[in-house]
């Protein structure tokens, strides 16, 4: 009949990027990027059906509750939102998750964690920021520690990490500190990412590349 079958017309949301390009710039293979697109679609259509991950959708995926406020989830969201326009696009999602890939060099993970903890983006983790994060963590975990104990923990941390004693932790000091305490970046690696195409195999059915 001369008609082009609509099943071959794949419409992508704004911010969609070619998996081949994304794979060339990240730790993922093309198939893994395509599998990540399945996860991305699930997250980005969970509340606001526009193919972009909004903060509420991110919170829903992390906490099963779209209204749950969390300082650290906010920071992760803001760092994933590279364009800083209030939503996470597919390209941003893949590039950011690539930091968490087991094959990504530690240096990148260390730098990402530093940005995460540098709440006010001054280039330093300051004492007040560290205390704010400790209080946020205690609040989320319903653990009560007295102000004296919190001050002791923060103070001890600065004794160990603030090598030049200027009252703030810079990136070099952070690198040294992580070298001595490698467990601090354990959460910067997601083993799931090695098996992502197994976890979301349905991409094979939808992939343009498989045509």
């Amino acid at each position: 009949m001369g008609c082009v079958s609509s099943k071959h017309v794949v419409k992508h949301p704004p911010g969609y990027e070619d998996p081949v390009i994304l794979a060339s710039e990240t730790a993922f293979t093309v198939h893994e990027v395509e599998a990540l697109y399945e996860l991305f679609k699930k997250l980005s259509f969970s509340i606001i059906k526009d193919g972009l991950i909004h903060k509420e959708e991110f919170q829903l995926a992390l906490f099963r509750n779209s209204n749950r406020k969390n300082l650290f989830a906010d920071r992760v969201f803001d760092l994933f939102d590279i364009k800083n326009n209030g939503v996470i696009e597919f390209g941003e999602f893949v590039r950011s998750l690539s930091i968490f890939h087991p094959n990504t060099p530690k240096a990148e993970k260390i730098a990402f964690a530093f940005k995460l903890y540098d709440l006010r983006q001054t280039g330093y983790i300051e004492r007040e920021e560290l205390k704010e994060m400790v209080l946020a963590l205690l609040d989320e975990s319903d653990v009560f520690l007295s102000n004296d104990i919190v001050e002791t923990i923060v103070g001890n941390t600065f004794v160990q990490a603030d090598l030049n004693g200027d009252g703030k932790i810079d990136l070099d000091e952070w690198r040294e500190f992580v070298k001595k305490n490698p467990s601090l970046i354990r959460n910067m690696t997601l083993p799931y990412l090695k098996d992502i195409s197994m976890a979301f195999p349905s991409f094979v059915m939808h992939s343009e590349g498989s045509d």
Binding site: V76, E140, I149, N181, S183, Y192
Partner: peptide
């Protein structure tokens, strides 16, 4: 309970930093 060695040990346990949850079905 023992006081953790450093504040970052404590912080790194936040649920908000556990992105593994994104992959749970």
């Amino acid at each position: 309970k023992p006081v953790p060695m450093n504040a970052f040990d404590l912080i790194s346990t936040s649920q908000g930093l556990n992105l593994g949850t994104l992959f749970e079905k």
